[in-house]
Simulated assay, not measured.
Amino acid sequence: MKLGSGLQRAQAFLIVATALYRASHLMVGLVAVVQHHRHRPVSWAVLAAAVACSVLVYGTARARGWFNGRTVWADVLVTGCALPFAAYLWGGAHEAPAIAWVMVLGGSSSAPAAVVLDRAQAVLAVALVAVTHALGYSLVGAAMAVTAGHLNSVVSSAVLGWVFWWYLRRQGTLLDTANEKAKEAEAQRARYAERIVHHRALHDTVLATLTAIAGGGVDANSEQVRSRCAREAAYLRRLIQQSADADAYPEAGAALEEAVRAAECLGLSVSAQYGEVPSVPPEVAAEVAAAVTEALNNVLRHAGTGRAYLTATGRDGRLVVTVVDRGKGFDPELVAGGLGLRSSVHERMRGIGGAAEVESVPGEGARVELSWPA
């Protein structure tokens, strides 16, 4: 069972604690049978039934992550109520010392019942065990002190189990709340850092261009200024488009945008679309952005076109980035050994546990898809 939230950890701890409690009672039963009832098959059968119930209750709890109410009720009715009468009727346990081990073993069923069942059912289950054991001790003529002491043990086990579960559940919930607050605080810090990055970029690009034009120091109609304005307008459009989604994923969004802007500075026009980009570790975002940079550089150097199209989104929990151009294309078999594709794209993605897929046909452009994880 994987340990996740604080509540899940509390549940796992209580399963182990009550299982050890039951194991100690099973050991008492084993010692008693070996020493005093080894020649009585019914005693062995009673012990085997208790072991089977224990495996059912705790095996199911271990597999599911928490107890199952039906198996707990089965344990109460069999281990807590039926086995003492079986030992008395068919196992020859007609004296208090002879039946005590069965009573002790059955009493341990009250702990998981108090933990798992709702209040009314828990009270009923503990009452059934207590009444059964009181009747069993009366049948063998046990002293009142013995009966009272055992009933106190049954009730105390239930109360202690409930108190432990209440405390652990409360602490687990508090831990989960604290973790959620810490995650939200970290997300806010990341969003603030992302805003600072965009503010600096706007200051160094759009604001600088507008200031230069307003000051009259440059010819607003020149090809160089118009080209720069077009690139920065595209940047503003992407910034507005991704603000609702990518702002929550600053590592991937900022890294990809930096790759796009670097390509635009070299003269490539990039139409970028950002969907619901999943959150990825910073090192993964950096490597994916580097692979994107190489893919865009290949468009610049080899595609014979001045435009590329980039999309970034989440698909089945994975980050998927696609770079497409409508240039002259190529035969992937002939260029598969090229340094750019092999080292800067394929090997880079494999190094972070991702994958790269390149599709192209001469005369029909190219498509590079990067995915993480693979």
Rank of each mutant, 00 (worst) to 15 (best):
K2H: 05
G6L: 08
L14M: 04
I15K: 04
T18C: 03
T18K: 07
T18R: 01
M27T: 13
V33E: 02
V34H: 04
V34A: 11
H39W: 04
R40L: 14
P41A: 12
A45Q: 01
L47G: 09
R64Q: 09
R70L: 14
T71L: 14
V72F: 07
D75P: 01
A93R: 01
L105F: 13
S108K: 00
P112D: 00
A113G: 07
V115T: 07
V115N: 05
D118L: 14
A120I: 15
V123H: 02
A125F: 12
L128F: 09
V129H: 00
M144H: 15
V146G: 06
S156D: 04
A158I: 04
G161Q: 00
L168Y: 13
G172A: 03
L175Y: 10
E180R: 11
E184P: 12
Q188D: 10
R195I: 05
H198L: 15
H198E: 08
D204Q: 11
T209A: 14
R226G: 10
A230D: 03
E232R: 14
L236N: 04
R238E: 06
I240A: 08
S243L: 06
A244D: 01
A246N: 05
D247K: 06
A254V: 14
A254K: 09
A259W: 06
S269E: 10
E276R: 11
P278L: 15
V292E: 06
E294L: 07
L296T: 05
N297D: 12
V299L: 02
T311Q: 02
T313Q: 07
T313W: 06
L319I: 15
T322Q: 10
L341T: 10
R342P: 12
R342S: 12
R350I: 09
G363L: 04
R367Y: 07
R367I: 12
